[in-house]
Structures are given as structure tokens and as C-alpha cells.
Design a protein around this nucleic acid. Structure first.
Length: 562
RNA sequence: GGGCUCGUGGCUUAGCCAGGAUAUAGCGUCGGGCUUCUAACCCGAAUGUCGGGGGUUCAACUCCCCCCGAGCCCGCCA
């Protein structure tokens, strides 16, 4: 509903500006505590017309003509600001829209392929990787909510050097079948790297494996695929625990086997940018200000990650309208190179979301060195802590209930802590911080939802008929603020989708829960007189829906009781 | 050495791209609130040279330049 209000303000302002004889310029609109929407456009016009901005604001206000059925209730000039306020109609329309499940989606028929996580299958996901997964998954949910047709893909690296090392390692060391398979893979991978670091001969065994693979050697393909499967099974399980969903897993090798990699190398050669450098093929991008040329092919003829990634992106470009990749900060240069190459061969380029690194207090994480905190470890720990919390608060409940709730708030807490931080901030993983349930995180939001559910459950069935609920009775300050906050959701979804910034939804969720808690404190529902009680019940139902939608979009469970 | 990103109360953090009304919130600290729909809640207080310096502007956390600090990257790894 807020979007509609904003559009109306924009539209009447534009007309008023013209009618007052001012030049049209982009109208700055801001939300502030002084108004539902304010503009400082008079300040901008002031130097152009050499006129007092306060006078300009007055002149513009005079010319504003409200249409029928408008959401704008009143307009005030304060200093040089023009302030717009919503009225009762806005509140009524908002509740009606929520009642009829009418979410303003704004996009249709746009196919988006979003790729995220795509971690090498050489070990389990660690706490750095899940930043990628959580950003990607949340964004996918936001885009869907905004009306896009979204397909989420995991690009499986099943033929890089690291996988060659894993497949080699499986034959050198004992694989611990008792362990979760991705963790067991990491064990042998770490050992193999220790050995390889000291032995040149063994390194050449890896090279031989890579060459045989590129030539589609059956036995080698089998070996690699077995190694990849073991790791991927474990990775999928972890993703599943965190409610992270991929629609498709695309194997890197498929682009080599199908000939797509050879094809794209030819495409790129046609641009005249490809040179031979000591037998390797490199692409020159210096005219774009990138001094580092991109290596397409090793001197032994095998392809590289970037080459196969180019083939993958060509395929994606042909199958969607918008590509989004979520990548770690180490991919900044390579993703820029990839985009430029795609551009030179006339293909669509992806929007790349770069997230900065998560490191440990001891330094950066490395699967190869065995320096990491796995996502499984974190989930196990947080669920243990969550269980303790539930057990303290609801000792009377069943074991099953406690476990289920612990699980719901545990993974949500992880997701919230990760998503609330802007992607371009690097962070340091801290156990104490990660397991802290006192802060206003996911459980705070989930608790507001549970409170709403509890009220609704206690109200008798027949009372939940809201045909006759009178919205006009909801005139307490906090009731209005709650409705306004609910009206704002579509705007948050839209902005988060457009700017690819999922963290703003996390912040909104906390504000929405906060607004509900304010209402909860001041407006008793079940004890209120009949008509007021019905109105407030309806408000609770709407709030519950909004909280649930918000939690769903953040990939967090919405417990009815906790 | 070069490139990209970040630097906001003790700690974590929003706002910066599209400059404007007293700089956002959480944790922690201090004080208060459960006979009332779940206190995983609520209310109040203290705490800021928005890394430093210059510049642009009527107006700078926001834009430009320089410096300092941190992270990431800099061809045949991914």
C-alpha cells in the first residue's frame, strides 16, 4: 500500500511543480519521523530560481490537487519541507488487502536464474560459505515474492584441480564411512594436500588425472563423480537443515562433454582478443582497464574454471532474462573479467553480488588447511543452546515440542545473524556472539508471531468472522503504527529485489515485530468489548499474516507456539 | 607496488549510490515493570570529533581529493 501512496505523492507533486511553473526534476522523497513521506524539492529549486525555498514550498503546496479516492490525507509545509500524511483510508485499504491476501507483486514474466553457494565439493560447508547460501536463498525468496519467475542453481564443480585431488586422495587414504560424507571427504582432502605440498611427483599424478578427464576418460569420470557425490550428499543435507533450496544442480563437466566449452573458446577467438602465451590461451582485456589477461586454456590444452564458467553463463544467458550470481570477495576480479568477456561476445551479463569474507579470530578460513568451523558444527551447537532456552521457558512441554522449537529458532537465528549484515562488510566469526539468544534476532520476530497465534487460538472460532470488523475502532497510536508498518512490506520487498539487498528485509522484520509488541502491550484483545475485540482480532490476524510472510521470505520458520 | 570493499557510542550495526528537519537500532551497563492475550516482552537513563585532514555546497555520515587502518584480489587454482 505504501508504494501506491508514494506513487500518488510523486504524481501530484509532478503536476504541481509544472503548474507552479517550476522545472521538472527528479523529486526527492524521504520517509521521516515528521511525515509519512516528505520532499525537500523546494531546496533543490531554490538556487535555480534564486528564491527562498520556504516560499517555493508554499507555492508548490498551493498547486497540489488531490484526486478522488486518494490515499493522501493531508499536506503540510514545515520550513521548506512539504510533508504528506496518510489517513484512515490508507489503514482501511491496507487491512483489506492483507485480509484478501492481496500482495502487490510488481513484476511478471521475467525469468531469473540465481546461482549461489556453488561450493567446491571438497568438504563440508563452513561458516563462510553459508553467508553465500543465506544471501542467495533469501534473495531468491525476495525475488519470488516480488513476482519474478526464479530458478535457483548450484553450479557443481566436478572437474577442477581440487576435485582431482579429492579423487586421488580417496585412493591414498582411508575414507571414514562412519562420518557425514562431506566431512570425511575433507579429512582425506586435507591429508592429500599435506602430501602434495612436499612431492612434485605426486603433483604430476594430479595433472595426469586432469588431462584424462578432459579427454573424457570413462574410468576417471567415474572416480571424480564418486568423489563429488560423496561431498555433495553432505552439502545438500546441510543446506536442507538451513532451509536453503536449490531448484537445479548443474554440473560443470556437462559443458565440457557437450562441447560447449570448445564452442565458447571459438566464440571468444573471433573477437581477436585471444593470444597464445607460452602455449596457453589468454584473453586481453587491457582496453577495459583490466591489466590481468584471463587464461582460457592451460598449455596442456585443458580448460580452466573460468572457461567452463563462461560456457555456463552463455547457457544461462540463453535461458533467462536476468542472471544473478552470489560470489565471495575473492571473485571480484574474475567476475569482472567474466562479465567483460561475455560483453565482447555479445551476451547478457550477470549481476554479481559480492559478499566480503567471514574469517576466524585466528585468521581466514581454508578447507585445504582444515582451518574452518563447519556449518554443521554451528547448527548443532545453536540447536543445543536453543533447546536449553526452550527447556527453561517451557519446562512443561513435551520433548518433541522442545526439539522442534529448538530447531526452528536455531537455524532462523543463524540466518538472521548473517542476513542482517550488509554483504559488503567483512566479519569475524565469534562463537559467543553466534550463540547469544538475548539479542533481538530471529527468535524476537518468531516470538511476536507466536504471540499473535496464541491470541487467535484463544479466540473462539466463530469470533474469527471479520465481516463486521470495524477498522475505525483501531485508533490507538500503536495500532495505526502497526498497520502502517504492515503496509510497508511490499515496498521493502520491492527495494530489496531491485537493489539486491536482502538485509533490508531483516531490518524490516525486526521493526514489524517491534510494532506488534507495542500494540500487544497497549491494546488488550481478548478482554476488549465486543466490537473492539473483533476489530483487534482482525488486526492480530493481519499482523500474524504479515509476520509469517516476512519470516517465510527470510527462510525462517514461523512457530505457532514457542 | 596496483585494484576493489570496509572504517559510525565499550562491542555489533542502519543510513551513503539518487546530499537536507535532533545520526538508526541491537548487545552490554544502570534504573524500572509479570494477580492482566507467552516477560524469548516492555519502559526509562548514560554513552558519538560518523577513521583523520582538506575541498564542493545555503546544507556533507552521504559527493570529490589526500592520508591512515582492516579485508579481498593481482594469468595457466577455484
Amino acid at each position: 500500500m505504501f508504494i501506491r501512496f508514494k506513487n500518488e505523492v510523486e504524481s501530484v507533486l509532478k503536476t504541481a511543480l509544472k503548474d507552479a511553473g517550476f522545472k521538472l526534476l527528479p523529486i526527492p522523497l524521504e520517509e521521516s519521523e515528521h511525515a509519512d513521506l516528505a520532499t525537500s524539492v523546494a531546496f533543490r529549486l531554490s538556487p535555480i530560481y534564486k528564491k527562498n525555498p520556504v516560499m517555493i514550498a508554499g507555492e508548490i503546496k498551493e498547486k497540489i490537487q488531490l484526486k478522488e479516492n486518494t490515499l493522501i490525507d493531508r499536506i503540510e509545509v514545515a520550513g521548506a519541507y512539504i510533508n504528506f500524511f496518510v489517513g484512515e483510508k490508507y489503514l482501511v485499504d491496507t487491512l483489506n488487502a492483507i485480509q484478501s491476501d492481496d500482495f502487490e507483486s510488481m513484476v511478471t514474466n521475467t525469468k531469473v536464474i540465481i546461482e549461489h553457494t556453488s561450493v567446491n565439493p571438497n568438504g563440508p560447508l563452513h561458516v563462510g560459505h553459508i553467508r553465500n547460501s543465506i544471501i542467495g536463498d533469501t534473495l531468491a525468496r525476495i525475488l519470488r515474492m516480488a513476482g519474478y519467475d526464479v530458478e535457483v542453481q548450484y553450479y557443481v564443480n566436478d572437474m577442477g584441480r581440487q576435485i582431482a585431488v579429492v579423487s586421488w586422495a580417496l585412493e591414498q587414504f582411508v575414507f571414514d564411512g562412519q562420518k557425514k560424507s562431506d566431512h570425511a571427504i575433507a579429512d582425506v582432502y586435507i591429508k592429500a594436500n599435506q602430501v602434495l605440498e612436499e612431492s612434485v611427483n605426486k603433483k604430476s599424478e594430479i595433472n595426469t588425472l586432469m588431462q584424462r578427464l578432459e579427454k573424457a576418460d570413462r574410468a576417471v569420470i567415474q572416480r571424480f563423480s564418486k568423489a563429488v557425490q560423496l561431498a555433495m550428499d553432505g552439502i545438500r543435507e546441510t543446506l536442507n537443515r538451513m532451509n536453503i533450496i536449490h531448484d537445479r544442480f548443474i554440473e560443470e563437466s556437462s559443458f565440457v562433454l557437450s562441447g560447449a566449452v570448445k564452442e565458447i573458446v571459438e566464440d571468444i577467438k573471433k573477437t581477436g582478443r585471444v593470444k597464445s602465451d607460452n602455449g596457453a590461451l589468454v584473453v586481453d582485456l587491457s582496453d577495459f582497464g583490466i591489466d590481468k589477461s584471463l587464461v582460457l586454456q592451460r598449455s596442456d590444452g585443458t580448460s580452466l574454471y573460468s572457461t567452463r564458467d563462461l560456457a555456463y553463463h552463455k547457457w544461462k544467458a540463453q535461458h533467462c532474462d536476468w542472471m544473478i550470481d552470489v560470489l565471495g570477495a575473492d571473485h571480484k576480479l574474475i567476475s569482472t573479467q567474466l562479465k567483460l568477456v561475455l560483453r565482447t561476445i555479445g551476451l547478457k551479463q550477470p549481476d554479481v553480488i559480492i559478499f566480503e569474507f567471514v574469517s576466524l579470530p585466528e585468521g581466514s578460513m581454508s578447507t585445504r588447511k582444515g582451518m574452518f568451523v563447519s556449518a554443521d558444527e554451528l547448527i548443532d551447537e545453536i540447536e543445543k543452546h536453543a533447546y536449553k532456552e526452550v527447556n527453561e521457558r517451557r519446562p512443561e512441554k513435551s520433548e518433541e515440542f522442545k526439539k522442534e522449537v529448538a530447531q526452528m529458532i536455531g537455524t532462523a537465528a543463524i540466518r538472521y545473524d548473517v542476513i542482517k549484515i550488509s554483504a559488503d562488510k567483512s566479519t569475524v566469526f565469534d562463537w559467543r556472539e553466534a550463540l547469544d539468544f538475548e539479542k533481538q534476532g530471529a527468535p524476537f520476530i518468531q516470538y511476536a508471531h507466536a504471540r499473535a497465534c496464541s491470541i487467535l487460538k484463544k479466540a473462539a472460532e466463530e469470533e474469527c468472522d471479520f465481516e463486521n470488523a470495524d477498522v475505525h475502532l483501531l485508533n490507538h497510536k500503536n495500532e495505526k503504527l502497526l498497520i502502517k508498518k504492515m503496509a510497508y512490506l511490499s515496498n521493502v520487498i520491492y527495494t530489496a529485489a531491485k537493489e539486491l539487498k536482502p538485509h533490508i528485509l531483516a531490518i524490516y522484520a525486526r521493526e514489524l515485530a517491534d510494532a506488534f509488541n507495542q500494540f500487544y502491550r497497549d491494546s488488550p484483545v481478548l478482554q476488549a468489548d465486543e466490537n473492539l475485540r473483533r476489530s483487534r482480532l482482525m488486526l492480530v490476524r493481519c499482523a500474524r499474516r504479515r509476520l509469517k510472510t516476512t519470516l517465510d521470505t527470510l527462510g525462517m520458520a514461523a512457530p505457532e507456539e514457542m
